[in-house]
């Protein structure tokens, strides 16, 4: 019996710290992981992703598909990302996010009916991009400085090791109280994000799957599903083509948001 107690005590002494060590063996804080998410999967040449977006009313099963294209590039550590619809009455509607010095972002939306880019305010970034379930922030990335991050115990999804983060908006007028994120340790892609409202109720989920490596350092989720729990509505992006390639920097110029991209 004494031997068993001794063995148990040893295990407590040695195994538990090991478990604890595995939760944060890399020493990364929640904010550092968030910064890595923002800095990962970007290219100084350019990343071009073509996709089909399906909007679906989960209750009625009414669905509608549209073509879209996403481009991003990193210049001097500052990321530029653009999203554009390529067909239907939304053709040409373009969303542009530009990193600014100091960690801030500036975002623009271009509608052909308006003819010039419109600057979007930070709290507007939580709103949905036109009639999709993606928020403007989902498409353009978030300012890590706008949130506080807490790293929780790592989790495993299947054979995928994930960081588990909780982030809370600093802005008290935010419509969300917190987000929970599972981030793939290999690709730094948030494979599951849950958003909770002020009462703590789950209101939105984002799931990214079918992650593929498209170049030495870039991973792309070929499936992105956003579900608005309250509206029972989903937006599913299915990537048809993704590649790291040279893109015209003018594609990220707000004054040229009406111009066609060669990659369209």
């Amino acid at each position: 019996m004494k031997k068993k107690i001794f063995a148990f005590a040893l295990s407590v002494l040695f195994v538990l710290p090991a478990v604890r060590l595995s939760a944060a063996d890399d020493g990364l804080t929640g904010l550092q992981i968030a910064d890595k998410i923002e800095a990962s999967n970007v290219s100084s040449k350019g990343l071009v992703t073509k996709a089909v977006l399906e909007l679906k009313n989960i209750a009625s099963q009414d669905a509608e598909k549209r073509g879209c294209i996403m481009e991003s590039v990193s210049e001097n550590g500052l990321k530029k990302a653009a999203f554009r619809f390529t067909d239907s009455s939304y053709r040409g509607t373009t969303f542009l996010t530009l990193d600014k010095d100091g960690g801030d972002k500036i975002t623009y939306i271009y509608l052909a009916s308006v003819g010039s880019p419109r600057q979007i305010e930070a709290s507007d970034r939580e709103n949905n991009f036109v009639d999709t379930d993606f928020s403007n922030e989902d498409l353009g990335g978030s300012n890590t400085a706008d949130y506080t991050y807490t790293r929780l115990a790592d989790k495993k999804i299947g054979d995928m090791d994930c960081y588990f983060l909780e982030k809370a908006p600093k802005n008290k007028s935010s419509k969300y109280s917190k987000y929970q994120m599972l981030v793939d340790k290999t690709s730094f892609i948030p494979v599951m994000v849950k958003a909770f409202d002020k009462t703590g109720r789950l209101v939105k989920t984002i799931k990214m799957d079918n992650i593929k490596k498209v170049s030495d350092s870039i991973y792309v989720p070929y499936g992105i599903t956003v579900v608005d729990v309250d509206k029972k509505h989903s937006s599913v992006i299915t990537v048809t083509q993704a590649a790291e390639k040279q893109v015209n920097k003018g594609n990220f110029n707000k004054n040229k948001m009406d111009m066609k991209w060669p990659e369209e």
């Binding site: 419109r118 979007i120 305010e121 930070a122 709290s123």
Partner: peptide, 10 residues
């Protein structure tokens, strides 16, 4: 000019 301000106001 245009400037996004706060609380969704531009």
């Amino acid at each position: 000019f245009q400037r996004a301000l706060f609380s969704g106001i531009s």
